[in-house]
Every structure is written in C-alpha cells, then in structure tokens.
Write a protein that binds this DNA or RNA. Structure first.
Lengths: 193, 193
DNA sequence: CGATCGTTTGAGAGAATTCAATCACTGTGG
DNA sequence: CCACAGTGATTGAATTCTCTCAAACGATCG
C-alpha cells in the first residue's frame, strides 16, 4: 500500500512466473497461495529449492538473470514490483534484508537435510517440518514427484516412505497433495534433529 | 574504515568463531583467510554449508542464536562488528542486502549439487567450481573429511573419486588440502551443468 | 471408452556406505 | 634419534540403501 510501482496480480495454479534464464524484471511478493522455486540440469533433473508462501518474496537475485525458475502451485495473489524501484527504495531494502536473513535459516536446514539425512528422515522432516506450521491437516500442493524433487529423492522412494509412515499410523492422506499429520511428535523423532 | 564499532581481529587457523547455540553478539567480515560454516546433528553428523572467503560475512542470521557454527580454516583477519550497530546502520544494511543476494545463488547451486548430483559430478564441480576462482593451483584448507562433509558424501567416497580424477589426469595434489587443477574444461563437463 | 499421466508395487542393479585393515604423517617421550 | 601412539587417508570387501527398470493400477479427460 506504500509502493506505487506495485501491481496486484492473480495467477492460476501451475503458472510460470519466470525461468532461470529470464532477465530480472520483477520482484514478487506473495499475498496468498504458494510458489515453488527450482533449478534444472540440462539432462532434465530438477531440484526444488524452496516452497514459498504468503509473506515470502520470489525473484530475488544478485545477477541479471534469475538463475532459477518459479512456478505457482495453486491460485496465487501476488504483488509485482518493478525490480529497479523495489531494490532502490530504502524501505524495501530493509524489508528484503530482514526477509533474506530469515530465509537463510530455512535454506541451511534444507541443505543439511539434502546432505546428511536418510530417506526416512527426510520424509519425517518434511511432514513434521516448520514449513507447514498449521498443525494436523495441511495441503502442500505438491505432486509426489515434486515432493521427491524437493527432498532429493526419486518418486518411488517417496511413495514407499509415505506408505511406511501411513502404516505406522503417523500420517494419512486427504486428497491430492494433502496430508494429515497424526503424530507430529513421533515424526520429529524420526527426523533426527 | 567507516564503522567505529568495528574491531579488527586476527585468529589462528581452526579457531571457532561461534557455535550454533551461541547468542548472536557479533557480525564478522572476512578481510583475509577463509572460514567454514556448518550445522551439526545430535548424532555427530556434520554438514558444511559454505566456505567463506575475503569479502564475505559470517554470523548473519535472523534469529537470536546463530543456528550454525563457524570455524576458521587458516589464519584469518576479520573485522568484528557489534550486531546491533551493524544491522541498524543504513550503510551496512545496504551492503548486507547486496551480499545476501549474491550468496543466494551459491547456496542454491550447492543445494542442487546435494540433491541431484552423483559423487563424480560433485567432485568435478568442487574442483571446477567458482569458489576457487584462481586457476590451476589452489588451496582449500579442507581436510578430506571436511570436503566430504561439504559435498554430502563419506570420506572414503571422496578419496576414491579424487583418486579417479588424478588417474584421469584432470587433477593432482600439492600438499595438505591443496590441489592443482590440470584440466578445468574436462572437469566442468563431468560436473553436469 | 481408450489414452494419458501420475502413483504404486515388485524385482533387480548399482552407487555409495559401512566395516575393517593398512598405510602415512605428526608429535611425544624415552 | 628412534619408538610409539594417535590421527587422518587409503584400500579392499561386503553390505545396504536408494535407484532403475518394468508392469500394473488408478485417476482424469477428451
């Protein structure tokens, strides 16, 4: 409400905001919905780096191209800033600075997961994790394949591990990309702090 | 030269700057030397998140505790700022903001490596990588174990892979933690862009 | 209804780990 | 100066976890 160069836009689910090679024109602030950020290898492998939600920013980078892609996971309301204006305004700089600091923790935690945790621990962490703070039921809007790309595993492995957690009574499914956490405490223990 | 709350300090190699649980008191700017930043699991597993060099900052975080540890890899000259002062000064805020944006690219690239690359690709990337820009000879100041903790592998695997690269004539050793890149182009190809 | 895409399940292969033993290096004390 | 731990690196063998391959199953959509 204080930036004149901000346009509010609405996007459907599964809409690309930008690709890795795109020139950096805009900065997006998520008002509602969720967005995933990812990197691709030339042979098709994809790593999902973060899942962003209301309050997060997408499109931040130091370079001239984004260096990563971004895709909406569900219908989103975004505030779109002009890159130039957003990064020069002192007010925005302060916000972005604070935001980047908070994000760093999450990114580091994820690097720890990718580098040091077993498949079982990764899934437990994913479902116990802080990303989905609302307890019990929550909707990740991610296909099983995408969960696997987020956790650095193969879809088959994720399928088996989710099945295992369900059989253990720690988790149940409630629709596409939606799950119900039945025992967060047990999941946290499996996650290996 | 413009911050009165900055003290220049010198540290020997292998000196801890802070631990994960420490309260955030200071912010460090590296003038010379290199520092590694890492996270620990309760069972002893360690993931090295970044290796920082001259011009980088250590100790940035959004929380009240650092959330990660930091250790010098060789004798270092640092500028130590008071946390409060550093993060409220507009000048520093601008610097930190820019710095965090640049760092993000590196962190994302590393997450891609940890999530999607094979051991051979990780090693090739490590030695071809942008972190060690000086061509040919360079000193990482990392033990083999630490390299493995950086790349999300076991030391035995790293040992075997380095051996393989040496036999292929792409790399040779030149002292503790020091290597000579003999064919960066070939390494880059192996790294799987 | 058939086609397509994603998930599930099984069996097998493979890459990296684990375990174990050896080797090399460093610093210490006799 | 040499013997001797103590640490980290290397090498080999065996294991295991995850991946790969393949088929079946289930949804969704023309």
């Amino acid at each position: 409400h204080q930036e004149r160069n901000a346009h509010v836009i609405r996007l459907a689910g599964r809409t690309s905001l930008f690709d890795e090679a795109d020139d950096v024109l805009h900065l997006y602030e998520i008002m509602s919905g969720s967005i995933m950020v990812f990197k691709l290898l030339s042979d098709g492998r994809r790593q999902i780096l973060e899942v962003l939600r209301a309050g997060d920013f997408a499109g931040l980078t130091g370079g001239d191209t984004y260096g990563y892609g971004a895709l909406t996971l569900c219908p989103c309301t975004l505030r779109r800033y002009d890159r130039q204006a957003a990064t020069t305004s002192p007010f925005m700089q302060q916000r972005l600075s604070r935001y980047l600091l908070e994000r760093q923790d999450a990114v580091y935690a994820h690097a720890l997961l990718l580098g040091r945790k077993s498949a079982a621990e990764r899934l437990a962490m994913f479902f116990a994790g802080p990303a989905h703070l609302k307890d019990a039921e929550f909707d990740v809007h991610l296909s099983l394949r995408e969960v696997s790309e987020y956790l650095g595993l193969r879809p088959e492995t994720v399928s088996r591990q989710i099945n295992r957690l369900c059989k253990l009574g720690l988790l149940s499914r409630s629709g596409w990309g939606a799950y119900r956490v039945k025992d967060r405490r047990a999941l946290s223990e499996l996650a290996a702090v």
